[in-house]
Computed example of a mutant assay.
Amino acid sequence: MITPQYCQMMARYNAWQNHNMRAACETLTDEDRRADRGAFFGSVMATINHILWGDSLWMSRLDGGAGPKVAAKDHKDLCDSFAQWATERRVMDQRILHWANTVTEPQLQGDLHWHAQMLNADMRKPMGLCVVHMFNHQTHHRGQVHALLTGFGKTPEDTDLVLMPEEAQWL
């Protein structure tokens, strides 16, 4: 279904978009970042925390490393400050890039097994589907942040995958 090259491209895209999103979010006041704007998770801060929490959860399943530092019910409060979020976001982006640069074809085959605590269910899905889901989840929720930033009168950078620079100056 997918290849290591797909994972590498999407990990680079994720890091690029998170860099751009961070820069745009830095132009907001802390009050604006925390303001409930009627989005699915309410605020910019809650949404970016959710993305980071989800990435931590999926990476723990993919690379066997540490998972989120808070329970699912507290995902919107993962990081107390924007500065903490920005630091943890960079670390997570590096973790995703490392995984993508080391994953092999055989590792992307077969099924992924995990226990979903929120559903209290053992899960089993194709590995490729799970990886695509992780990258799609990031993109979906960054789109929500993009809309929130636009609502604040900010102009976020391009999000088109075909416009991603070849040189990774954001890493």
Score class of each variant (00 low, 15 high):
residue 35 A to G: 04
residue 108 L to P: 07
residue 76 K to V: 10
residue 126 P to D: 08
residue 155 T to F: 01
residue 30 D to T: 01
residue 156 P to L: 05
residue 9 M to Q: 14
residue 163 L to I: 10
residue 36 D to R: 04
residue 10 M to E: 13
residue 75 H to T: 10
residue 86 A to H: 06
residue 163 L to W: 10
residue 86 A to K: 05
residue 36 D to K: 04
residue 104 T to K: 01
residue 161 L to M: 15
residue 12 R to F: 06
residue 56 S to R: 12
residue 153 G to K: 00
residue 38 G to W: 04
residue 156 P to C: 03
residue 90 R to Q: 15
residue 168 A to F: 12
residue 23 A to M: 15
residue 123 M to Y: 02
residue 24 A to Q: 03
residue 124 R to F: 00
residue 115 H to P: 13
residue 105 E to C: 01
residue 7 C to A: 15
residue 97 L to V: 13
residue 131 V to C: 07
residue 29 T to G: 03
residue 138 Q to W: 11
residue 89 R to P: 14
residue 77 D to M: 10
residue 34 R to W: 11
residue 149 L to N: 05
residue 158 D to F: 01
residue 120 N to T: 02
residue 95 R to P: 15
residue 92 M to L: 15
residue 74 D to H: 10
residue 114 W to Y: 14
residue 65 G to H: 00
residue 162 V to W: 12
residue 58 W to L: 11
residue 142 R to C: 01
residue 19 H to C: 07
residue 36 D to T: 05
residue 103 V to L: 08
residue 159 T to A: 10
residue 71 A to F: 08
residue 37 R to S: 02
residue 47 T to S: 11
residue 73 K to R: 06
residue 36 D to Q: 10
residue 44 V to M: 04
residue 22 R to Y: 03
residue 3 T to K: 05
residue 83 A to G: 12
residue 82 F to C: 06
residue 39 A to K: 02
residue 142 R to F: 02
residue 164 M to Q: 12
residue 135 F to P: 15
residue 48 I to C: 09
residue 97 L to F: 12
residue 138 Q to A: 13
residue 16 W to S: 03
residue 104 T to Y: 03
residue 89 R to G: 11
residue 47 T to E: 14
residue 92 M to H: 10
residue 51 I to N: 08
residue 17 Q to M: 14
residue 88 E to C: 11
residue 124 R to N: 04
residue 165 P to G: 08
residue 73 K to H: 08
residue 39 A to P: 13
residue 70 V to T: 09
residue 93 D to A: 09
residue 58 W to Y: 14
residue 98 H to Q: 08
residue 120 N to C: 01
residue 40 F to H: 10
residue 131 V to K: 02
residue 56 S to M: 13
residue 110 G to E: 11
residue 98 H to R: 04
residue 5 Q to R: 01
residue 69 K to M: 11
residue 152 F to Q: 07
residue 38 G to D: 06
residue 81 S to V: 04
residue 117 Q to N: 08
residue 30 D to E: 09
residue 32 D to E: 15
residue 94 Q to M: 08
residue 8 Q to I: 04
residue 3 T to P: 14
residue 125 K to I: 09
residue 36 D to I: 05
residue 110 G to H: 07
residue 9 M to G: 07
residue 5 Q to Y: 02
residue 163 L to Q: 12
residue 18 N to T: 09
residue 51 I to C: 13
residue 10 M to Y: 14
residue 41 F to S: 02
residue 27 T to G: 01
residue 42 G to W: 01
residue 61 R to C: 02
residue 9 M to E: 15
residue 61 R to P: 09
residue 96 I to R: 03
residue 12 R to M: 09
residue 151 G to E: 05
residue 52 L to C: 14
residue 45 M to W: 14
residue 152 F to Y: 11
residue 34 R to Y: 10
residue 35 A to E: 13
residue 121 A to C: 07
residue 87 T to R: 15
residue 153 G to E: 01
residue 171 L to D: 13
